[in-house]
């Protein structure tokens, strides 16, 4: 059924597991730091992407699948999510264009 014969070792899983938990703890540390919200957000986003990457690569066995699977799936999702960033322009506009402010 599954032709990807490669089996990750349990130690590898454990390492990834610990790494994910450590990153989660790291995020909490960042959350309590006294820097502006945008920087907190960016750091958290990067860490979350690293976490997700670890989960996809190891837990979800993307590493041992054919490369084409990753090339078929991931760019699609990343592309669509990247395009949604066009929303932000309007979100910022709402801030200073709320009515009845004057």
């Amino acid at each position: 059924m599954n032709s990807s014969g490669h089996q990750s070792s349990l130690t590898m899983y454990l390492l990834v597991y610990v790494a994910i938990l450590v990153i989660s703890a790291l995020q909490i540390l960042i959350a309590y730091q006294n820097i502006d919200a945008y920087r907190i957000f960016i750091r958290m986003l990067l860490l979350a992407i690293v976490q997700a990457g670890l989960a996809v690569t190891f837990f979800m066995h993307m590493r041992s699948e054919k490369r084409t699977l990753a090339l078929f799936l991931l760019p699609a999702a990343v592309f669509v999510l990247a395009m949604m960033n066009m929303f932000w322009y309007d979100s910022f506009r709402l801030l200073d264009m709320r009515p009845f402010a004057h």
Binding site: M83, M84, M86, F87, D90, S91, L94
Partner: peptide, 12 residues
Amino acid sequence: GSPLLWQHLFWF
């Protein structure tokens, strides 16, 4: 809320 958000999500 913002109706523009709906427009964005819908037209996306």
